[in-house]
């Protein structure tokens, strides 16, 4: 474990050097422990692949105190048994066609047919390593290496919200319309970020995630439910 500063109110705790699901699991475990146990001293905890950023107010809680308490908690978490796998959020996805304009290219580059790309993309239990880039954007681990596809040479200016895309060895979902260079293979009618909901974010760091291929009729039905605020996301516990 390495502890570094990021500004006068940020403490960075690094638990490893690489992208590794085991390291990431410990990141989330420590993040939860800090939130639960050091709530009075800490304002925010921001997990990423292999580190956490702990944000505090240096005028009310000196850095040394934060570092000392985080260190003690990290030792405790280190000795704790491995956590049980968390929930899996199911993401209905319409692959190909107007919703996934790059599916054919991804299939060609992978040397597979489109159905096989869909089957392989929808097979894994992905891990939400963390959220970043735009509000609610999941950095997912677990993509089948056969589907790894280079990014577009020139990014698109507007990618519709809900687009499911592959960029290099990563796959993700665009929560809001934004520019982007990943290849779009499908779209989900779910809203990963919706400021009208009590909890606007569909996903949390550490969640499991599975893509579920749907047809146009199901896509449209879910989209209508989401639009009227009736939709409850499907979760496997």
């Amino acid at each position: 474990m390495r502890i570094r500063a990021q500004g006068e109110g940020g403490v960075v705790v690094e638990l490893g050097d690489a992208i590794d699901p085991a390291v990431n699991a410990r990141v989330h475990l420590l993040a939860r422990a800090i939130r639960e146990r050091l709530g009075g001293d800490v304002l925010e905890v921001v997990p990423s692949y292999r580190s956490l950023l702990v944000i505090h107010d240096p005028l009310t809680t000196p850095r040394d105190r934060v570092v000392e308490r985080v260190r003690a908690l990290a030792d405790e978490v280190e000795r704790a048994p491995a956590p049980a796998a968390g929930r899996i959020v199911r993401i209905p996805t319409r692959y190909g066609g107007v919703h996934g304009p790059d599916l054919a290219d991804v299939a060609r580059l992978a040397g597979l047919d489109e159905d096989e790309v869909v089957r392989r993309h929808a097979a894994p239990r992905y891990l939400v390593h963390f959220l970043g880039f735009t509000p609610g954007f999941p950095y997912l681990g677990g993509l089948d290496p056969a589907l790894a596809t280079p990014r577009l040479d020139s990014p698109r200016a507007r990618i519709p919200a809900g687009s499911v895309a592959i960029g290099g060895v990563q796959t993700g979902i665009y929560p809001v319309e934004s520019p982007g260079g990943w290849r779009i293979v499908g779209r989900t009618p779910l809203r990963l970020f919706d400021s009208r909901r009590p909890d606007p974010f569909l996903l949390a760091p550490g969640d499991g995630l599975r893509f579920v291929p749907v047809d146009d009729a199901t896509y449209d039905a879910v989209l209508a439910d989401v639009g009227s605020g009736r939709h409850e996301p499907e979760v496997e516990e």
């Binding site: 304002l43 925010e44 905890v45 921001v46 735009t134 509000p135 949390a204 760091p205």
Partner: peptide
């Protein structure tokens, strides 16, 4: 809008 950085909110 602090408090939601873990959800990717600047």
């Amino acid at each position: 809008r602090p408090g939601h950085r873990a959800s990717g909110m600047p």
